[in-house]
């Protein structure tokens, strides 16, 4: 078909966590501009399987931008060249015939490579488990207006709750810092009435776990915000730092 592309891919191949990996060149032909980036990988993998080669391991699930699993560092950027989307939402029309595309896994001490492009993001799960929840049963949905929440608080909580835990913030940050993710998970609860009782404990516990996992510290470069598919704002980091200061200086339970 006209408009279809022939591409060169340089993909990180690594047998397992212990093995030494390397970038390997592959060619794919006749790629439709309407394909998603992951569909292009499906084409490549079918090609590899037909030849009897090992297919490229990569994470994917929903393929519609909501699960956050499709981690790929494409041409030097998490989720590729477009703003505000995940890899599964990236289309091949963002590339040109003859392009060479470099695809690497997320790189962070806290995100060890499992195989090829798949990385272990259970560090995020452990941060959530450290306090990113409300531990009382909140019961059925309230009747309207029985639990008033100021509009600005509701908006902030809602925007923070859009985080899908993809890890692009860590992947983009020169310090491999998880501050944007953690601040989103702190702030989705910190502004709602249900989140108040554990607010101080939560921020302390989640930050402690974040540090333990070996993420770097935040130097406010803003790379995370620019690369986040859900456009989580740096405002969350400032708000978390405020809560963290307050929790350590003023909270007597500390």
């Amino acid at each position: 078909m006209s408009g279809n592309m022939n591409l060169t891919l340089k993909i990180w191949r690594q047998k397992n966590n212990k093995a030494k990996g390397e970038l390997v060149n592959y060619k794919v032909a006749d790629i439709s501009p309407d394909m998603s980036f992951l569909e292009m990988f499906d084409v490549l993998n079918e090609q590899l399987i037909t030849k009897g080669d090992e297919p490229v391991a990569f994470d994917h699930d929903c393929r519609e931008g909501i699960c956050g699993i499709c981690s790929m560092h494409i041409n030097g950027r998490p989720h590729g060249p477009k703003h505000g989307i995940t890899t599964c939402q990236l289309h091949m029309r963002s590339f040109k015939d003859g392009d060479t595309i470099v695809v690497e896994p997320w790189r962070a001490q806290a995100f060890p490579v499992i195989k090829d492009l798949a990385v272990d993001r259970s560090a995020f799960d452990r941060i959530i488990a450290a306090g990113g929840y409300v531990s009382v049963n909140t019961g059925n949905a309230q009747d309207g207006n029985t639990l008033p929440v100021p509009k600005t608080d509701a908006d902030m909580a809602f925007a923070a709750a859009a985080c899908i835990g993809c890890g692009a913030c860590v992947a983009a940050c020169k310090n491999a810092s998880a501050m944007l993710f953690v601040s989103a998970k702190v702030n989705q609860l910190a502004h709602l009435p249900q989140g108040q009782p554990e607010r101080m404990e939560r921020v302390r516990a989640m930050v402690a776990q974040m540090d333990k996992e070996g993420f770097g510290s935040c130097t406010n470069t803003g790379a995370c915000e620019a690369e986040c598919p859900k456009e989580i704002s740096l405002v969350n980091i400032a708000a978390m730092n405020r809560d963290y200061l307050r929790a350590n200086l003023l909270d007597s339970e500390g």
Binding site: N75, G76, V102, R107, K174, N175, F215, A226
Partner: peptide, 30 residues
């Protein structure tokens, strides 16, 4: 010390990065 610690947080570096697409060079060069 923080520069040193933050280097440790990414032991294997990327073959390709495009930092200018998401941040200022001087923010990354403190």
């Amino acid at each position: 010390y923080l520069v040193f610690e933050n280097k440790k947080a990414r032991p294997v570096s990327y073959a390709m990065t495009n930092g200018n697409a998401n941040s200022k060079w001087y923010s990354r060069s403190m």
